[in-house]
Computed example of a mutant assay.
Amino acid sequence: MSRPSLNDLTAFVAVATHRSFRRAADEMGMAPSTLSHAMRALEERMGVRLLNRTTRSVLPTEAGFQLLGRLQPALTSLDEALDSVAGFRGNVAGTVRINAPRLAAGFIVREILPQMAERHPDVTVDIVVDGQFVDIVSRGFDAGLRLFESIPKDMITVPLRHPLAFVCVASPAYLDRFGEPKTPDELQRHHCIGHRMPSGKLYRWEFERAGQELMIGTNGPVVLDDEELMVDAAIKGLGIAYVADWAAEPALFDGRLRKVLAPWMHAPEDVAIYYPGHRAVPLALRAFLDVVKEFRRN
């Protein structure tokens, strides 16, 4: 049996991970038919079926799963070995394309980009703000930023230092006028600032206490699709807002807003940068991840 090429093995990992010739072909920069032909040639060369194909899906065989499990760490080690000598070539250069919701994009701009600009001036960080969860591979992104629990299991994650919590907030003037709700049910008697999700649906506020979970539909004078605007509306006394603590933190710190219903809020959730683990990590992305990891340690 002739030894398969590194390109063929990398292509197999992409197909077996995505379980789709189309998505793997997009990643590899080739036509799906060309990739399918390359996989058949690989199977013939190895003398074993690696992929079960149907009109709708591609699934590794038992032999394919075994090969995939061995190849993924081997390819990762190879990438790390090549990157270890990259510094001898000079400065890292290139573009890192990142998909993130607006609030997380703001975090990157404030906390990560100053260090990136100082250490890697030849790297461009291209951030696309998108409230909807997208397939970063098929859309051509190097990485994404989302709540940890929503990230696909086949991605490699780098958690941020600060987890994300949601808070209910209102201005002191509003609370002086209308009082402070003690339970989520009391929100029905309050002005609430609505949150329209990227899908177009209104977000139902989520609460939890002692194992009891509640989802509350709210009414109020304004509906917005941007958390920073929700914070501004709450500061102006338009009502109670349900927002990420990242958005409300400055106004909470200087007293323009106060928390309400704190005992009913969910525990903080981890937020992470994520990227595909089955392909080579570009040097520019690796430099960006190193800055994120250092920020997390400090």
Rank of each mutant, 00 (worst) to 15 (best):
Tyr274Pro: 15
His278Pro: 11
Trp246Glu: 11
Asp254His: 14
Pro268Thr: 01
Glu269Trp: 09
Pro250Lys: 10
Ala272Ser: 03
Ala272Tyr: 00
Ala251Phe: 06
Asp254Pro: 14
Pro263Cys: 04
Arg258Ile: 01
Pro250Cys: 04
Leu261Ile: 07
Trp246Cys: 08
Val260Asp: 01
Val260Lys: 06
Trp264Ser: 08
Val271Gln: 01
Trp246Ser: 14
Pro250Met: 07
Phe253Leu: 12
Pro276Cys: 01
Ala280Arg: 15
Val271Leu: 09
His278Ser: 09
His266Gly: 04
His266Lys: 11
Ala251Thr: 09
Trp264Lys: 12
Glu249Asp: 14
Leu257Glu: 06
Ala262Cys: 02
Tyr275Asp: 11
Gly255Met: 03
Arg256Phe: 10
Gly277Trp: 06
Gly255Leu: 04
Ala272Pro: 03
Pro268Ile: 01
Pro250Arg: 09
Val271His: 03
Ala248Leu: 12
Glu269Ser: 12
Trp246Asn: 13
Leu261Pro: 13
Ala248Tyr: 15
Pro250Ser: 04
Arg279Val: 00
Leu261Gln: 10
Phe253Gly: 12
Gly255Asn: 04
Ala272Trp: 01
Val271Ala: 03
His278Phe: 08
Ala267Met: 10
Ala251Ser: 13
Lys259Thr: 12
Pro250Tyr: 02
Glu269Thr: 13
Met265Ser: 05
Lys259Tyr: 05
Arg258Cys: 04
Ala262Leu: 04
Leu257Ser: 09
Gly277Tyr: 05
Ile273Arg: 08
Gly277Leu: 08
Leu261Ala: 10
Ala251Asn: 08
Asp270Cys: 00
Arg279Glu: 00
Tyr275Ala: 09
Val271Arg: 08
His266Met: 08
Val271Phe: 00
Pro268Val: 00
Ala251Arg: 13
Asp270Tyr: 00
Glu269Asp: 10
Met265Gln: 12
Leu257Lys: 09
Val281Pro: 13
Ala280Asn: 11
Leu261Trp: 09
Trp264Gly: 07
Val260Gly: 00
Pro268Arg: 01
Val260Asn: 00
Asp254Ile: 11
Arg279Cys: 00
Val271Asp: 00
Ala247Arg: 10
Gly255Ser: 06
Pro276Lys: 03
Pro276Ser: 00
Gly277Thr: 02
Ala272Lys: 02
Leu252Met: 10
Leu257Tyr: 06
Leu252Phe: 10
Pro263Val: 07
Val271Thr: 02
Leu252Glu: 09
Tyr274Lys: 12
Ile273Thr: 05
Pro250His: 07
Ala280Cys: 11
Arg258Phe: 05
Tyr274Arg: 12
Ile273Leu: 08
Pro263Tyr: 07
Ala248Thr: 15
His266Tyr: 06
Pro276Asp: 00
Tyr274Cys: 15
His278Asn: 12
Glu269Val: 14
Ala267Trp: 06
Ala267Val: 05
His266Val: 03
Pro250Ala: 04
Leu252Thr: 11
Pro276Ile: 01
Glu249His: 15
Leu261Cys: 10
His266Cys: 08
Gly277Ser: 02
Ala280Pro: 13
Lys259Gly: 05
Ala272Met: 02
Trp246Ile: 13
Ala248Gly: 13
Pro268Asp: 00
Ala247Ile: 04
Ile273Phe: 09
Ala267Phe: 07
Val260Leu: 01
Val260His: 03
Glu249Ser: 13
